[in-house]
Amino acid sequence: MKKRINFFEVLGILLIVCSLGVLLFTQLHSQYTKKKAAEITCKIEAALPETTPGFPGDYSDPVMPVLQVEGKDYVGLLNIPAYGLSVPIVNEWSSFHVFSCPARFYGSVYDNTMIIGGNDQTGQFDFFDRMNPGDHIKITDMLGTEFAYAIDRIDRAKSADYEHLASGGYPLTLFVRSAYSAEYILVRCSTTF
């Protein structure tokens, strides 16, 4: 007797294939963006002068300059040595950009108001749930000035609007939406000089 695949089986297989396709795509995409971010970082590092320590009080203008690399504006480099992370920071925020690199959400390192958003995919902030208070973070601007921070506290929140992100007046806040728990991880940092 001939066995025919019915509508429900077709739809079920289709949904499973789509799910696997999305999984495969995100894995390939994160590998690609990781490689791309490393290339951009190398290009930026090659263009920058030797780093010098920066002090937020030194600036009469809080606006950070950007360097355009491969058609996209970057405002600096984000370095977290304990986790081997060194990635460029896109200047203009968009939820699309954070799939490639962390992006400046608001503010500036020059006046201690910097907020950076990111993604927890491989090659970016995939270690966020392992970060600890005291971990060091460095941001280098496009003039080669390096600003040093240490993690003060790590919060979890259901929403991440500007008021929530800027609350507490921390010089640097990193945030990332956890893919699995659907909550935001907010990393609050203080300057270390």
């Binding site: 077709v10 079920g12 954070v98």
Partner: peptide, 27 residues
């Protein structure tokens, strides 16, 4: 700006996978 990342991709993927399995079993 708004964070804008309100599209919970993984939630949809998980829902799609579970639905797919259930439909397959039902079929």
């Amino acid at each position: 700006p708004k964070t804008g990342d309100t599209f919970p991709l993984w939630n949809y993927v998980i829902a799609m996978s579970i639905s797919g399995f259930l439909l397959l079993i039902f079929g």
